[in-house]
Write a protein that binds this DNA or RNA. Structure first.
Lengths: 222, 222
DNA sequence: CGGTATCTTGACAACGATCAATGGTGGTGG
DNA sequence: CCACCACCATTGATCGTTGTCAAGATACCG
């Protein structure tokens, strides 16, 4: 079924690298285009993003695709459905990930701190997904794109500020399939934000936010 | 902010009731219209649905609402965002819930079995939400309603079968806000399914599925 | 039995999808 | 180093599904 399965990483090849406070299972560099896992694979590992960007997606037989999430530094991906993964996971921008064993989720016997961090990450994941429901079900195209950009902007800078640049390593198609839109609509809405002088583009993958207040106002749809 | 906060249940009033294998914190009967909690409340408890139906929702200031999930028997609701709830939770059909302390999520010290069940439920929740993303972002109105009915039908009967009746305790508005549609569109699609002799209605809240195969085919959109 | 909520149905408008063409960018080989 | 090519993004024109507004029918509750 998954033709490229052979390319899936074997996380154990990298030796264990202990860090400051937590006993880390392993760290692994993965490059753009590689799949960390496919839907249906045995979910032996949970990945903590250190750098780079991942893309989690589900694909229907008829080709329709939904990007479930982008994995940015600090995010944890690979939460299992039973013993299997329930999405595909592809590297969108060269990344480093910490590889945890799935059994870390069962209990804190080996490493209570990590166990709790994973459980907390799962709670945060649920919270974030609930917000994304609102976006998918109840926001119009312009609000969707504005929300997306604001979310990325807030992750990049702790204090919200205009004038910041954000890099979009993913394609327009990825963004469209994340927001429940088409490529064309994403492109048009981006053009519209540009026409309003809220953002400017330096190539399709580099966005400068000039008016974060307006962007936030559009995103939250007052 | 939450005017009706006084109506929120205090789960501790019911004495502890131990069951077969698990040390249960408490069981509580709650009736239709009651709110188990509101967004922003301190998330001291996690609820396991035994009977009845709950509704989890988020509301935007401008009144737009997204129903995040319906809680059916076996479901676990109230996963916290930090120390607070991130949705409102209202009882849609008189229910019994088992009340677990939130600290059950932290580790398995007191009750490993329950801790693991809660973590497993969180994983199942994430999986289910990923499926719902596909519905919200990539399915048309007819597919959305068919998916919704099929999901309920599958929960009601283990073996998929035509001819089963399903009770919809929630309003059309609840369904609409769950599927990212309007009341009118839900109603029209229901009428369409009726016209195709796939379902029949006996009042707005009682649906009989006559042709589960067709319904499933529409839902999965081949 | 009556009143009110909710649900259904209808007419119309609008937003986003689709189809199609153009423009831009990055990579490769001459 | 430049030219070509393939892929991706943008723009334009049109269509269709769903939302909106409005009226009528049905169900629910006192």
């Amino acid at each position: 079924m998954h033709v490229m399965l052979a390319q899936t990483v074997s996380p154990t090849v990298t030796p264990k690298i202990p860090t400051s406070s937590v006993a880390v299972s392993a760290i692994r560099r993965v490059e753009k285009g590689l799949h960390l896992y496919y839907e249906g694979d045995g979910a032996d590992f949970i990945y903590e993003v250190v750098s780079g960007v991942l893309r989690l997606e589900r694909v229907l037989e008829n080709g329709r695709r939904q990007v479930v999430a982008f994995g940015y530094p600090g995010d944890i991906v690979g939460f299992p459905a039973g013993t299997r993964y329930h999405t595909d996971c592809e590297v969108v921008a060269d990344a480093e990930v910490i590889v945890h064993r799935r059994s870390m989720l069962d209990d804190g016997r080996d490493d209570l701190r990590t166990h709790r961090r994973l459980v907390a990450a799962a709670m945060a994941e649920i919270t974030g997904m609930q917000d994304h429901f609102m976006l998918l079900g109840r926001k119009c195209a312009q609000e969707k794109l504005a929300s997306f950009l604001m979310t990325l902007a807030r992750r990049a800078t702790n204090g919200s500020s205009s004038g910041i640049q954000i890099h979009l390593p993913m394609s327009r198609g990825d963004i469209a399939d994340f927001l429940g839109l088409t490529i064309e609509t994403v492109s048009r809405q981006m053009t519209r934000l540009r026409a309003q002088n809220i953002v400017s583009l330096d190539g399709p993958h580099l966005v400068t936010i000039h008016d974060a207040d307006s962007l936030a106002r559009i995103a939250d749809a007052d």
